[in-house]
Amino acid sequence: MGQTTSKTQTGGPEAAALAITPPQIVGPFYPVSERPDLANDLTRPNGSTAEAQGQLIHVRGRVLNRSGAPVPHARIDIWQANAAGKYRHPSDTNPAPLDPNFKGFARLTTDASGHYSFRTIKPGRYPTPEGDVRPPHIHLTIEGQFDCLVTQLYFAGEGDNATDRWLNAAPHPERLIVTLQPLSHLEKHELVAQFDIVLANG
């Protein structure tokens, strides 16, 4: 993962700039009947003691502008399918089961240094009405001080990445793909990924 740097045509001391995170579609399953959990742990909605089913993952990163300055207090909406590939949305006709302990919708705010983090489960792949199969992905909307970006986060090693029309329509789709690593030697059952998000102006 990670945003690479690119050179502008003007040269000079400001020639190096971070590449903007590619945008993606909102998709048909932005929550319409749920309020977001205002917490960074999607695996335990509303303080539930039960935990969502699936591979536990942590996503961490920073929201930055193209010059590398942090974007403080940016709002991040997160929504995703559960481990079986099912959204908690009335338009999702996938016959996969809902997870009663997973809402899959949360809202976060970056800190003063632009940092964010959340704990969730790795979403499952799912079929579309057009006959495609979407790879596991997480939707994010980021509202900074000047910009609003809608994007999606994907996972390395997924075979469906190669054929996903939305991922491959993005400029530099590799910037949307993260690699999951063990969280620590003490919690090998949980994985972590770094995903920095770059807005044009912040």
Rank of each mutant, 00 (worst) to 15 (best):
Y30K: 11
P127Q: 13
E34D: 13
I121H: 07
V59K: 05
A200Y: 03
T179H: 06
K103A: 06
K86L: 06
V150R: 03
G27F: 05
T109I: 04
T5W: 08
Q3P: 05
H189V: 04
L180S: 05
A74I: 08
D99E: 00
V192K: 11
A15P: 03
A39L: 11
G202N: 01
G114Y: 09
K86E: 03
R119N: 11
Y154M: 04
A52R: 08
A81R: 04
D92Y: 02
W79K: 03
G54I: 12
P100R: 00
G202V: 00
L176P: 05
R66N: 02
R75S: 15
P36W: 08
P45L: 09
M1P: 11
V59A: 10
F195V: 14
F155D: 09
P123R: 11
N161F: 00
E51Y: 09
A17L: 15
A74F: 03
E143C: 02
L199C: 01
G85R: 05
Q194P: 02
R134K: 11
P182Q: 04
L56Y: 09
H58Y: 14
Q53W: 12
F195D: 10
V32K: 10
I138F: 02
P70N: 11
F146Y: 09
Q194R: 15
I177F: 10
Y126M: 03
T43F: 15
Q53V: 10
I76K: 05
A39D: 06
T43W: 12
G159Y: 00
L153N: 01
M1K: 08
L140C: 07
R125G: 10
T49N: 15
G47F: 06
K86D: 04
R88C: 07
D37N: 14
N201E: 01
D132H: 06
M1A: 10
D99L: 02
R66A: 05
V133T: 15
A16V: 09
Q24R: 01
R125S: 12
R35V: 12
K188Q: 14
P22W: 01
